[in-house]
Simulated assay, not measured.
Amino acid sequence: MLLITCPATRTDELVADRRIRSVTNHPTHIALHVECPACGSVHVYRTGRKLAAAPAREARIPVPA
């Protein structure tokens, strides 16, 4: 179960796992596409590190010569 906030209705909704439509793994976050029971549309929720922190983290990774 997931607790999401619908951006259309601004209500908190408890969502079953079967409502997750897809999961996408990105270098900086994981994106969950969830079907919302309140409005019926699919919303994207991102988890993990903030997107703004990604370039700073990548700049510290040494590149092999």
Rank of each mutant, 00 (worst) to 15 (best):
P7G: 05
D17Y: 07
T24Q: 11
R49A: 14
T28S: 15
I30A: 08
T11Q: 15
Y45H: 12
L51M: 08
R46Y: 02
M1E: 11
L51F: 06
R21S: 08
P64H: 07
G48P: 01
P62I: 03
M1V: 09
C6K: 05
E13P: 00
S41F: 04
I4H: 05
A31C: 04
P7K: 08
A65Q: 13
T5D: 03
V23W: 00
I61D: 05
T28M: 08
I20W: 02
Y45F: 15
R60N: 09
A59E: 10
L51Q: 12
R46H: 07
V44M: 12
R10F: 03
A8M: 08
L32S: 06
R21I: 09
C6P: 00
R19W: 01
R46W: 00
R57G: 09
C36L: 09
V15T: 04
V15F: 01
C6Y: 01
A52I: 08
R57D: 13
P64F: 05
G40H: 07
M1W: 01
V34K: 06
P62R: 07
C36Y: 03
R46A: 14
E58Q: 14
D12M: 09
M1Y: 02
H26N: 14
P27Q: 06
D17Q: 10
V23I: 15
N25L: 10
N25S: 09
V23Q: 10
A53Q: 13
P64V: 06
K50R: 14
